[in-house]
Design a binder for these strands. Sequence first.
DNA 1: GTTGGCACTCGAAGAGTGAGAGTGCTAATC
DNA 2: GATTAGCACTCTCACTCTTCGAGTGCCAAC
Lengths: 350, 350
Amino acid sequence: MQLDNRKKEVLHAIVDDYVSTNEPVGSKSLIERHSFNVSSATLRNDMAELEHLGLIEKPHTSAGRIPSDKGYREYVNSLMTIEQLTPREQLEIEKRIDSSIDEVTDLIKNATHTLSETTGFVSLAMSPRLKKSFLKQLKILMIEPGKALVVMVLSAGVVKDKVVRIPNFLNDEQIMKISGAIEKHLTGKPLDEITLVTVETAGKNTDVPEPLLKQVLYEAYAAIKQADELNIYLEGEHRMLSLPDFSSLGRARDLLGTLSDSGMVAGYVNEMENAAREAGSDDSYMIRIGQEITLEGLDDCSFITATYNLTDSVSGNIGVIGPKRMLYSKVISQIDFVKKKLNEEMKKFT
Amino acid sequence: MQLDNRKKEVLHAIVDDYVSTNEPVGSKSLIERHSFNVSSATLRNDMAELEHLGLIEKPHTSAGRIPSDKGYREYVNSLMTIEQLTPREQLEIEKRIDSSIDEVTDLIKNATHTLSETTGFVSLAMSPRLKKSFLKQLKILMIEPGKALVVMVLSAGVVKDKVVRIPNFLNDEQIMKISGAIEKHLTGKPLDEITLVTVETAGKNTDVPEPLLKQVLYEAYAAIKQADELNIYLEGEHRMLSLPDFSSLGRARDLLGTLSDSGMVAGYVNEMENAAREAGSDDSYMIRIGQEITLEGLDDCSFITATYNLTDSVSGNIGVIGPKRMLYSKVISQIDFVKKKLNEEMKKFT
DNA sequence: GTTGGCACTCGAAGAGTGAGAGTGCTAATC
DNA sequence: GATTAGCACTCTCACTCTTCGAGTGCCAAC
């Protein structure tokens, strides 16, 4: 994208003005609000050029211009500068982070809540991707005949459990044996290396009769697999209704309808994460603007995520879905700061 | 409320028509759609009377009438007849109930989901009130130095756990002792009879040094208390945006804003439950209409809940928040049917 | 490359209008 | 006394028309 300096400034100004006023910006108001040392006619020429390049567009013939997705993209990639939050803003966030929390999940929910409150948009977080974390403990507790609880402690201090059905005849002692055998063989193994075969091998040398054993092993395997399933936490959907960008009911409905399918959103976040990883991106945040987002109803949104780390190998995402027309630099630093705080809290655990 | 038969029929017809058309209903259209053997002028007189009684009202002078909250109330209390769901409708619901679920929480979520899908409104469920359930097992598992997991098995097959901090110096054996002592003394006790004092008494005769012991006991107590905290599950908020009743953005925003504070909604459900209990109501459902609901932004809603039973003494609520202008009898039978199915699934556990 | 000037476009907002649905009231009827 | 026909009146909704203003593109001049 070859843009001379003034054109860059014009695009910058158009984005800024449009973000703050929510009105298409015309050449004249541009002159009024900024100190360009040229006339409005000149800016009109520049704007015609920017429009040709697809960076801005007209809602209709006789209105001002608004940034296109491509324009926002250019703005985000090359024009804006990200400023640190003021101490006051930092404090505002720190106040909301609850550092007395003992469980990773609650910590993440707390961060999500904080992010939604500070940005005023929808915030979301993914649970940590635990595939790379390894098993530290696995216990099977009898609850009652036919029912047991598989408790797993993973590296990174995460505890997972699952109620499973087991054969009625099995007694406490047998379960203990199986549980001990599994734990002995699988401790230290990353979750993504544990397969049904591994679990079955681990349980082999217990003297529990074959078919019963097999069922328990299968259930244990299922519990382990469930432990690395991803969860997503979404918050603040209702805030979108207060934004002028979604004052059309249809738009709001489409947006909230899509967001209500949290599995779909989770899938998309994963896609973003994978894409960034493949691209070897070293940005501290990922961003998708408007039509770049392949979820229905998010054409007028931008999706920004960052990656938090529970341990070196275990991470997850936290981010925001807001209107395209947002203060990118501010929101990015807010996400970044919340992420930083979250990382700090998580370090306490490990 | 003294209403002669025809006036009752008129009110009934007005509610029905308004619910199905979403338009104020006038005397003439009333005649057209129903077989009253009188003229429209007569109905006009009746309607004037109904308006005097506060059962119906005019949006403006020259429009038809719509039911007031009081009118809906009369309709719900005395006029409507609740019909069974058709076999087809029942099947539709049964298809959505997943009977392979092993955990109470998932069962409840599944029922909530089903209810939202079948009614098209917001559905909600409260987790079971476990105060009356008793402790069947309590184990404390060491996770790592300074950290343990308290696992509780309650009557009714519910499993709860909580990660707690414990003194670093404590070893596996000491924890086992404490855990064993607590379990021995508290097994069979309903949760609401367990206090910090009870727990401390239970732990007395272990030979673990005093201050350390005290901390563990406190944490165990906290875990037990946390076990009977109520959760609420809300689903389908976005569906409200598709209803003509909330086509005004302001209304929709207020509604979703309130619903986003799930704690507040949970509190209100509890209030309803308590009120019904005090009144010794034997209805299978509770209902609040419009302004009867003390939550902000729900003036145009009705709130219907029913009580499911996990065991004889442990129950919770499940219900729907929809527009006042709803097919009450249909929705009530839907809730009732889902509740019935939920009860059946829960019976399998106990 | 920049500028002033000008004709043109288009949407938003406001005023005016007519149609339609509904009401309340009155006087006559059963 | 309840019911009815008739009628004048009210009020909203949908439409059209108009004006206003902001903005544009283009051209000729600097």
